[in-house]
């Protein structure tokens, strides 16, 4: 039993819950969306682990059912980023014509996302996403981040871009296989450790 031993001239008990005050550091958390596949899970966890380990920032992985849902959440600032495919960005999100050349496609979605949506495409991971997903759309996978998130965390783009080109076809296949048992976080951690990124 607690006792207040000295007089209590002012004691204010707030019955209603107050919203959590934005007390600096712990409030700096980030949210990454995933769109349901094992590949998405493992890539999101790689980003989450990298950010968490290198900056101490808390990162939460939030599941969605589709790119449409994740994209809508990103636009509403419900999440800070998710991994998108250039082919999906071009044809589904932007409703534009497919482009055959991977570099041209990446540049096209990067420019339009930046100018029209205030979203930034970071460096692609390096594998052919169309091949890895077994679809015909020519595509690369890359993190798409809210521009205001990058302003709040100025070092974030440089950090996440360390993953650029680090995951080739063979590596993503191996990561997916390892993570298929539901151990995405552990697989992601192992990948980063083996590549001396954390």
């Amino acid at each position: 039993m607690m006792k207040v031993l000295r007089p209590v001239p002012v004691l204010l008990l707030l019955i209603l819950c107050v919203a959590n005050m934005a007390f600096s550091c712990v409030g700096k958390s980030l949210e990454i969306g995933t769109t349901g596949s094992v590949q998405q899970e493992v890539l999101a966890n790689i980003i989450a682990e990298l950010i968490g380990e290198r900056t101490g920032t808390t990162v939460k992985v939030v599941p969605f059912n589709s790119s449409d849902e994740a994209h809508a959440a990103l636009l509403k600032a419900d999440i800070d980023m998710y991994v998108e495919y250039t082919g999906v960005g071009q044809t589904v999100i932007l409703q534009a014509q497919p482009l055959a050349d991977a570099d041209e496609l990446y540049k096209a979605v990067k420019d339009r996302y930046n100018q029209e949506l205030n979203l930034i495409w970071l460096k692609p991971f390096g594998f052919d996403a169309a091949q890895s997903l077994g679809v015909t759309l020519p595509a690369e996978a890359a993190p798409v981040v809210r521009k205001d998130t990058l302003k709040k965390f100025p070092a974030l783009a440089r950090l996440i871009n360390k993953l650029g080109g680090k995951i080739d076809q063979q590596t993503i296949a191996l990561l997916e296989k390892e993570a298929s048992g539901g151990q995405s976080k552990q697989v992601a951690h192992g990948f980063l450790k083996n590549n001396r990124l954390i």
Binding site: P7, V8, P9, L14
Partner: peptide, 25 residues
Amino acid sequence: TSCIPLQISEVSDLVISDQQVWQGE
């Protein structure tokens, strides 16, 4: 308010603007 020690074992949101001494749980 000033003489009887206040005994409580649970608090929700609480603002302390005076001098308080706590003991126990």
